[in-house]
Amino acid sequence: MILVVSGPSGSGKTTVAKSLANKYGLRFVSGGQIFREKATVLGKDLVSLNKEAERDFDIDRIIDQEILNQAKGANVVIESHIAGWILADESTVSVYLWAPLEERAKRISQRDQIPYDKALMTILEREQSHYYRFWKYYGIDIQDTSLYDLVINTSKLTPDKVLGIIEYFLDSYIRLTPGK
């Protein structure tokens, strides 16, 4: 089984993906963590590496190839902004989580213990870079969620409620499609 959890920063994708991995006994792979590790190795922050990736497709190509390699092992939950698109033909189920910008900035501000305004600006800078790069390199409109099996607005839901919705969907899906 290959489960994909995508969405913008602060939507809850990492929290939910880790919980799904634990619940179903699957490996957890974070595209965001792969990107963060690359930034650390290069001595850059996330916004700087995103800006560099706008000029150098090899940065995204290497990270995306690692995500694809991890998916080949199956029995995995992959969390990534772009995984839904690059794994569209391989994933068993793909989920897209989102929340309004203000809610995501509030969550990131609390999570990272930074001022709300800084969280908001960081999200805007990173998302602008994502929109640009994913369109430029892949022809992907990351606002088009039509390829996802399940799309959830997480703004008024606890992580446990989001997990419950996904578990219900997965259990129903697995019952209806034996062998998946």
Rank of each mutant, 00 (worst) to 15 (best):
W135L: 12
A119I: 03
T92K: 14
Q143V: 00
Q113G: 12
K118L: 08
E66V: 02
Y148F: 15
I59T: 07
A71K: 10
E102S: 14
W98A: 03
F57S: 13
Q70I: 00
E52C: 05
I59M: 07
D149Q: 13
D89A: 14
L150N: 11
H130T: 06
R55G: 08
G73C: 04
P115D: 01
W85P: 05
W135A: 11
V47W: 04
E79P: 09
Y96G: 03
E54D: 11
Y132R: 15
L49G: 05
L87W: 05
I78Q: 10
V47F: 05
P100K: 13
H130S: 10
A105I: 01
R111Q: 14
D117Q: 12
L101E: 09
L97M: 04
I62T: 12
S109T: 07
D144N: 11
K136W: 04
E54Q: 14
L147H: 14
D144T: 05
Y137R: 02
I108N: 12
I62N: 10
R107Y: 06
A53Q: 01
I67D: 01
E90N: 11
A105K: 02
E125I: 00
D141L: 07
N50Q: 14
E79T: 09
K136C: 08
N75G: 13
I152L: 13
Q110A: 15
T122I: 01
L147R: 15
S94T: 07
N69L: 09
I59L: 09
S94I: 01
A53N: 04
W98H: 15
S155R: 09
V47Q: 04
I67M: 11
V76K: 07
Y96W: 15
Y96N: 08
F57K: 14
V95K: 03
Y132T: 13
D64V: 01
E79A: 12
G139H: 09
Y138P: 01
L97W: 03
I108H: 10
S146Y: 02
A119Y: 08
D56W: 04
L120S: 04
M121T: 04
Q128S: 15
A83I: 00
E79C: 07
D56A: 07
S129K: 05
Y138M: 01
L124N: 14
L147V: 13
L120C: 03
Q143A: 10
Y148L: 02
E54N: 12
I63M: 11
F134E: 01
Q143W: 05
T154G: 08
Q128V: 00
I142Q: 06
K51F: 08
Y96E: 07
D58W: 02
E54T: 13
L87N: 03
E127R: 04
E103A: 14
K106D: 00
W85F: 12
V93A: 12
A83W: 02
E79D: 15
I59E: 02
I67Y: 10
L68Y: 03
D64T: 02
D60F: 06
I62G: 03
R111A: 12
A71C: 09
I63W: 03
T145K: 15
V93E: 00
S146C: 01
Q110G: 08
V95F: 08
N50L: 11
V93D: 00
F134N: 10
L124P: 01
R61H: 10
Y148N: 08
R55T: 10
S129R: 07
N69D: 14
A119V: 04
T145H: 15
Y116G: 06
K72N: 14
R111E: 13
L97K: 09
K136T: 10
A53C: 05
K106F: 07
E54L: 14
H130R: 10
Y96Q: 02
E102R: 11
K136G: 12
Y131R: 15
